[in-house]
Amino acid sequence: MAVGTDLGTSSRWKVAAVVGAVVVCYVAVLLSYASAHSTDEVDTHTPDPGGALVYVDMSSVAGTDFSLDARVSVYPGSELMDNNGHLDRDVVVDLTPMQAENQLEFPAGSAAGPLPATIYADGDARSWPFDRYTAQSVTVRVFGRTDAGQQPIPAVVVVTNSLTGWNVDAGSTEIRDGDEFDVTVSRNTVSKVYDLAICLVLLALPTCALFVAVSTVRRRKKFQPPMVTWFAVMLFAVLPIRNLLPGAPPIGSWVDYTVILWVVMGLVTAMISYVYAWWRDAP
């Protein structure tokens, strides 16, 4: 009786330890996510009366196209607006290096709303989830068009981040027009944890399959014919789970060689082993 009681107590402690570890990991992920989304600072930038404030808001990443999508907004100073608060002249923003050579134009008499822009960025999408992209030597210049011709407008450039799961680093929170700066985007810690968690889910599939297959081959467990379909279902579940990876890494990425390939090989090995057990033991 004492031995059985000790074994039961030991099993309960093991179950409690596993549940506790899962709860701790769950709380840690939630706290990390909350801290990553509670660091927004209050914007205190204001344009000079005769100048402009330009926001370059990073909105999406297209790693396979080597580009960063942004929204460019212009907030003119009081000397550049009419009595209605609209632009009193055409304002042109020259952002380089854009993938299109067109300038961003904000016509007179309108409120300068955001315009889309695509910036060339260097990076390697195949290194997911450790990929990072850098747009080098970015410059922003602002010009005003009047009857007297095109005149430069002094401007302050602010790079902001609307990317979910990414960090954006422009080297400075406030950049003067004409100054060159680099914009680097990289996945934040919470995003990487999520990515690696999905990889662990994938690795769990062949681990379970091989455990069942090896136990059956060694005759520690009895062969069960319906289990063959279980192996097939897990094998076909790999591709849908891979497609859940954030950012949709291209085929041939780092994750395919380090995780996906071995998951598929493990599942196929387990299924072949189980079929061998069937051939050996089935009547």
Rank of each mutant, 00 (worst) to 15 (best):
V3T: 05
V3H: 10
D6Q: 12
R12P: 00
K14Q: 13
V15I: 09
A16Q: 11
V18K: 07
V19K: 04
G20R: 06
A21W: 02
V22P: 02
L31S: 08
S35M: 11
A36R: 03
T39E: 12
T44L: 13
H45R: 12
T46Q: 14
P47C: 11
P49S: 11
P49E: 08
P49K: 03
G50W: 00
G50D: 10
G50M: 00
Y55A: 09
M58Y: 01
S59M: 13
F66W: 05
F66D: 12
P76N: 06
G77V: 07
L80F: 03
L80S: 02
D82G: 14
N83S: 14
G85T: 06
T96S: 15
P97I: 07
M98W: 01
N102M: 05
F106C: 04
F106P: 00
G109F: 02
A111M: 02
A111P: 00
A111K: 07
A111D: 07
A112R: 05
A112W: 03
A117E: 08
A117L: 10
A121F: 08
D122Y: 11
D124V: 05
A125Y: 03
W128K: 07
W128R: 07
W128Q: 04
P129A: 11
V142K: 01
V142C: 04
F143I: 03
R145C: 02
A148S: 10
P154H: 07
V156Q: 15
N161F: 04
T164K: 13
G165D: 09
W166C: 11
E174F: 00
R176H: 06
G178L: 03
D179M: 03
F181E: 03
D182H: 08
D182Q: 08
V183K: 06
T184D: 01
T189K: 05
L196I: 15
I198Q: 13
C199S: 14
C199F: 14
L200F: 15
L200Q: 04
P206Q: 06
T207F: 15
C208M: 09
A209R: 02
L210V: 15
L210D: 07
A213S: 15
T216R: 10
T216C: 14
F223A: 10
F223K: 04
Q224D: 13
M227W: 14
F231I: 12
F236N: 06
F236L: 14
P240S: 13
P246H: 13
P246Y: 12
A248V: 05
P249L: 09
P250Y: 07
I260D: 02
I260Q: 03
W262G: 08
V264Y: 08
A270L: 05
I272R: 07
A277E: 10
D281R: 13
